[in-house]
Design a binder for these strands. Sequence first.
DNA 1: AAAAATTTTTAGATTTGTCTAAATAATGAA
DNA 2: TTCATTATTTAGACAAATCTAAAAATTTTT
Lengths: 217, 217
Amino acid sequence: MQSYTEENYLKIIYHLSEISHPVLTNAISERIQTKAASVTDMIKKLSEKGLVNYVKYQGVTLTDKGRSTAINIVRKHRLWEVFLVDKLNFKWDEVHEVAEELEHIQSNLLIERLDEFLNFPRVDPHGDPIPDKHGNFAELALVKLSKLKPGDQGTITGVSEHSSAFLKHLEKLSLTLGKQIQIIEVLAFDGSVELLVEQQKTNISREVAKYILITKS
Amino acid sequence: MQSYTEENYLKIIYHLSEISHPVLTNAISERIQTKAASVTDMIKKLSEKGLVNYVKYQGVTLTDKGRSTAINIVRKHRLWEVFLVDKLNFKWDEVHEVAEELEHIQSNLLIERLDEFLNFPRVDPHGDPIPDKHGNFAELALVKLSKLKPGDQGTITGVSEHSSAFLKHLEKLSLTLGKQIQIIEVLAFDGSVELLVEQQKTNISREVAKYILITKS
DNA sequence: AAAAATTTTTAGATTTGTCTAAATAATGAA
DNA sequence: TTCATTATTTAGACAAATCTAAAAATTTTT
Ligand SMILES: [Mn+2]
Ligand SMILES: [Mn+2]
Ligand SMILES: [Mn+2]
Ligand SMILES: [Mn+2]
């Protein structure tokens, strides 16, 4: 059994693993809002528990045990987010913080029953895939909106930034999951993107475009 | 904002307040599975935060602020228990431990929406009243089964012990909420009670009888 | 390749909640 | 009322998770 804090470290390491291998101390410390020295301490502890492989000054990778623990936390996080949106009428920008707490509730029965109650959803309100009880899930082939060229079309199927500020911004621009879009122009000097949604022209910054994930069509 | 641990102390003090005023250190230490010395430390802290009134060697009572905090935790605990039984098909003996964790999730929106989703239930799966968002609830006039006399009739409307072992035992005897019962005899030498449930004679120990709450009819 | 800058680790301290052992206060019996 | 028992508090210590400041390793620049 892991503590609340250990679970958070495992989850962060899991997410950062998709960006860099191995995961560096500073990357963790930035994400989790703690000093690098504290991260080193915790990594040593996780290493002694057999949840990560740690090489001094090189960084960490998850062991199988660490990864499956992390995936289970991600599963719980995303199922709770679906619950909040589908059953309790939360908006997609209101769920993340609450799910950060709910993901640590310890009960297999609870999470399996919740999965069933929600009808075994495959994706969460931000388009992220939900692992099944064995930790399996299909990685979707999504491309960042910022990678598209003028004329490209597609559907918004995910976002890689979950802050309320960002999601509210998207909502205001009607850039929500399922919406069809078409690129009109990518401005050379700042990388901002002009695009078409629901017959409306909109302009978004390169920053925003990087966080919107598209299924091309 | 209180820590997980502080919340648990407040809740225990609240429950024990119905038995003794003020609440004694040892009573808390037994209930919460910690040593009396640790309880003293925590009580001092809660006192400094204005959540309890503490007189050395006399015990503690909740302040208004402490009581309303405690009631809110009880509200959350009981609403989650209803959720688990009504929506996720948990049995009444499976909910308490999970609710002990869920009651600490911090989100007013969550709990108000949950209340609405459950259709504003008045009692939890053990017959305990659920405080509304202002902390108000009707105290039910229940009497312990162990206080009844031969010939007395009534309905099981609550239990004052929530352990799985106890509740499974009741289930086995068909002594669940809503059942009509009639006392046949109270045995003098051990206080055990013979009673009628669904045309069946059953015998329960005095211990068990004390934990079953009845509305007389 | 050496010097400078950056990253990571170590050392020592702090806070929270807990413990054991000893001291003190309250209660009950003689 | 004095003695013995029980309840409660104090003193000092410990584990978990964090911090700051300093040391060590790694990477980058010259
Ligand atoms: Mn989230
Ligand atoms: Mn999500
Ligand atoms: Mn309960
Ligand atoms: Mn209950």
